[in-house]
Design a protein around this nucleic acid. Sequence first.
DNA 1: TTGCAATTCAAACACTTGTATGAAACTATC
DNA 2: GATAGTTTCATACAAGTGTTTGAATTGCAA
Lengths: 230, 230
Amino acid sequence: MPSDQTRSAILAAAERLYADRGFGDVTLRDIVAEANVNLAAVNYHFGSKDELIAELFVSRSLATNRERLNELKAAEESGGGRAPIDAILRALVGPTLRGCLGPDREGSTAARFMIRASIESVAPIRRIKNREVDHLRKFIAAMRRAMPGRDDADLYWGLHFALAMSHHTIREKERLTKLSEGKCDLNDVQAIIDRVVSVSVMALTGGEAPAKKAPARSPAPQGRLTRQDL
Amino acid sequence: MPSDQTRSAILAAAERLYADRGFGDVTLRDIVAEANVNLAAVNYHFGSKDELIAELFVSRSLATNRERLNELKAAEESGGGRAPIDAILRALVGPTLRGCLGPDREGSTAARFMIRASIESVAPIRRIKNREVDHLRKFIAAMRRAMPGRDDADLYWGLHFALAMSHHTIREKERLTKLSEGKCDLNDVQAIIDRVVSVSVMALTGGEAPAKKAPARSPAPQGRLTRQDL
DNA sequence: TTGCAATTCAAACACTTGTATGAAACTATC
DNA sequence: GATAGTTTCATACAAGTGTTTGAATTGCAA
């Protein structure tokens, strides 16, 4: 068997198992059994378990970021250098949500692996993850161009909430289905993206920055919510 | 040393270590070292490591749920049996956010433990967590009373997003601080609660249910977002 | 004080983990 | 077809895991 076949068999098996069962529950022996290779092959080809995980994460991380930036670039070009805020957010959450909730089980493995990585913070991944901040800054910059008057903190919160909703939806997919007794359709990915983007846009455009230094703390009135502040 | 002292010393040490370092990195030997008790004491008092974790989680879970329901009940009573939607959401996310982001380091241990539990889904906790659905249903019921016309799915999504934002904020607290270079103040808990509640209310009142069966899929217009649908 | 149950303790158990080893099998070049 | 380099393999290793054991110690009632 050529060396590359073993290598990629290990990578594929590891990604699948980590995506399904998390990092804590998967041993090297599980991986080599799934990949039908010898136990020593992992250390021979990757040096250590941690380096295997790191390689897996780095390559997937670059792929997702590339996809996001492609969508962002396309949106900015079609808007003459200034993309609308909803398109920016769509470029941010679309690739992840499509990948993780989409019907194609194949591509979803990679994304579910990334979700695991974003949840269980295991040592080799934690080290790499800090670079992601630079990636998100590009979206902040685009958002600043789309909403020039907006306070910076509001932009950060908007981006933060957009990621919150998309990640939480992926993570709690089964729970939400059970809680809502099927009334929330987790298979209609496009509708979910629309919903997440819609709420994120409202978070950014509505509200007018809750209680910047105002005397009243609560942005929502005491009684029924009126819509005066939308 | 009385038996109860050993018992609670183990519980306290375990909670602290799990909250700080997660479930994957903490061994029984770490716990008994922190608690200054013998290794065998854990199995003597709790039966097994899993039962220790379960007891920890159950008691904290009940406490948080009780706090939430107290706030909900208070809001409903002061509103004559029908609490406004923002008060309902505040009762949902307030206790958790206050506990985890609040300045008092003491109470935060318990809450940070709960966050860990909601993130790293370890076996003994996963089994217990499914009961939580019943607890959330009480909030859905209250929301239904507050917004009688609203589609059920919208209510579930609103509650889901509220939890998403609060949990994600707690989990990514450091990252958001770093990304925003301190512009997002993670210490002003009340402002964060206001912001989460505000966005959640917008998600529930605005939007008018994105593309129920409408021909156009996207709730956000192609170009800049107009506010016609708010 | 004696006796009995509850608790603590050091030690060991059985098992799993990631990693290392050296021989065997393969592959390709001369 | 012999040789050198690469890759595979069974096996062993050292360290760490949760759990168990049985003897010591403690606390308290008779």
